[in-house]
Design a protein around this nucleic acid. Sequence first.
RNA 1: GCCGAAGUGGCGGAAUCGGCAGACGCGGCGGUCUCAAAAACCGUUGGAGGCAACUCCAUGUGGGUUCAACUCCCACCUUCGGCACCA
Length: 818
Amino acid sequence: MIERYDFRAIERKARARWTPDMYRAKCDDPERKFYCLEMFPYPSGELHMGHVRNYSIGDVLARFLRMNGYDVLHPMGWDAFGLPAENAAIKHRTHPARWTWSNIEHMKEQFGMLGTSYDWEREVTTASPDYYQWTQWLFLLMFRRGLAYRKRASVNWCPQCETVLANEQVEGGLCWRCDTVVGTRELEQWFLKITDYADRLLADLDQLQGWPERVRVMQQNWIGRSEGVELVFPVADTKEPIPVFTTRHDTVYGATYVVLAPEHPLVEILMSRHPSEELATFVRRTRAIDPAQRIAEDFVKEGVFTGAYAVNQFTGENIPIWIGNYVVYEYGTGAVMGVPAHDQRDLEFARKYGLAVRVVIQDAGHSLEASTLDRAYVDHGTMVESGPFTGLPNTEGQDRIADYAEQRGLGRRRVNYRLRDWLISRQRYWGAPIPVVYCDHCGIMPVPEEQLPVVLPLDIEFSPGPSPLASLESFICTTCPGCGGTARRETDTMDTFIDSSWYYLRYCSPGNRERAFDPEAAGYWMPVDQYIGGIEHAVLHLLYSRFITKVLHDEGMLKVEEPFVRLLTQGMVVKEGAKMSKSKGNVVSPDEIIRKFGADTARLFILFAAPPEKDLEWSETGVEGASRFLQRVWRLVTSHADSVGGMGNNPGPGAGELVRETHRAIKRVTHDIRQRYNFNTAISALMELVNALYRYREGTTRPDRAAMCQAVEKLVLMLAPFAPHLSEELWSRLGHAKSVHLEAWPDYDEALVLADEVTVVVQVDGRVRDRLTVAVDLTMDEVQELAIASERVRPYLAGRTIRRVVGVPGKLVNIVTA
RNA sequence: GCCGAAGUGGCGGAAUCGGCAGACGCGGCGGUCUCAAAAACCGUUGGAGGCAACUCCAUGUGGGUUCAACUCCCACCUUCGGCACCA
């Protein structure tokens, strides 16, 4: 009577057996250290399938590496600050802290049910004071290094979340969290000077060869470096300089006007000199436009003449100064030169408002005519009407004009970045308070380090509307650390992306009370060898973390300049082609799948159904298939367990093909996990081994018992990372006292991987005509002789001459005829 | 507009260095067991032709390189993703 695969009992038993020390890092061998990290979750209350995928991938790797003798750090924690907790507090009349902590408790149980092998002794929670104290410390460090500053600016505002947002958190004009259309507000806010690191963040992308190409490209696009020249156009009568940034300084002789962004400071001055109702209305209206409207397709380019003129210092001409709604104040200098003949936007603008068009680059083939030009000529060519530069190829003219401008003080070479500074203050409650006080006497005062943490007060009532901190006098009123007088606390909290930009460092020395992290521990563990998470953080979390790592490196606290050596961005779990979401009603709950099929099946399916970086279509029948496979393994191993238990491990002579098949499987599974991270093909190799074992058991040729035992044992060892519970049970039934997860990963013998016979394909003119089974040690000549002599091949050679024979050892012979 | 990735059976996918296209799984079809069903097991399953042995076609499209191309090169089409009045 074969015992049923009772996954519930098996998984319960295995979990009860596992102890924390099994997964504890040893910290004793820097050569064998491996930091395996998955992006920590926001404690929303429930793990979803995306989490199951993310954490199954990480867990397979961690378990695999431990079995391979690595000292593995595999921690988990909680990105626990954030707005959903506040919303839930209002909705359920609870407190964000209570909601968050009870979610954590529940999700930790779910992690347990999944069978993940974390070192929970290193758990971190960003919302706990012993963590956010160090987030605040990090802010002070940034402040001390001149990287945190306060400035009044036009900033992104989400009306739904009632807070400002960083540029990275506005996606297509919508709030990253709630998809509300983002507006702008003129506010004084805290920023981190990530732009100071733009060049390094860009240049070091080259080092990140272990990252997916597309993530590097996304960051490259986001940083958006462009090389050009800043040229000065002085206002005609007053000589006030108007610097403009351009990458096409070779066209400067064709600049027939200058356009300012409506927010440009000069606009107010020019308006006061030439008061105009039209101008004032235009400026007011344009400044009020949402970022979402600006990127809309039907956004019309409009402008107004200021009445003033500037000097094109190259031609000596006076050219009109306009204000345009398409000039972005935050980019470059907030002013551009208009070269209608060589920029499509400028041409449209010039035609619309009757501005002069002048061709200064000529195409070799055609003769461009300003009056008839219907498309701007943007390609390379010869410079014309360009003073001393006339006749030069424009590429050469670019250098010459830049030199000329620098020599005569008309401008200078400059690199511009699209990246903006990171806006980090949030008008929300559930975050780390920014450790700053405002004193009428001393100004902006950082809270001294020894006074950290600035504790987030918990005794608060929640209702819709702005952050309760903003009106909490007991929090706000304080004393100035400088003069001891009365002062007011900053009531904004920090962007939660700061919390998560350094958590991987905290794991290295989680309990440390003296510092954010112990540089020695971080020196041992950093960098993270393998990071696993969603693509949605390609420019958010992953860029911020790189920035913070570089700052801490510059501070002398970290040896590394990049936090994550290898990055695996796993695809989404989708159903019916769409991402699982409550609104679409296509959510499959991990709890339900675990209850119905067990965690091992859930893990196996999700790893088998697609390679990790691709989207994965959820399939109930696919899950059943995974379950069926584990049942097959169960029956195979349990029915052998009695006989296998007492057997020695030395296969006798004649074990033959089964031994080789086992060694081939070990090689493939090892390689697929370690080199390729292709868990789907690793699992298929295990399936093939199981299929082979069934064939041997049921086939007519009696398997060698010892070889069979060994194959079964290796199978269970290799299954351990994927299906940790079942493997544990089977391993113990095979008579082993030690946990399978403490065993060594099986080795393979390269000599045994090779079969003693191989199938060689025989082609005639590239078409397969026969297959020969030959001994491996046959020479190529012998194989070719056999091929030509083949019965099946002969008809195709009849009446033709053999021109040449191509041979690939162990694989193929191609007979080429004339 | 710029940049990037991907197109393979009914489906998910495999083919690791240019060498048998479709491993493995799902689904389908046929069978064994059964009073019957489920489960399990066995066989079969890209398309066309053929009684069959077998032959031809086939990896988005069109070219090219090669003895040999899913794989390399050129052009194009489609889908997805990122950036975008960025000067």
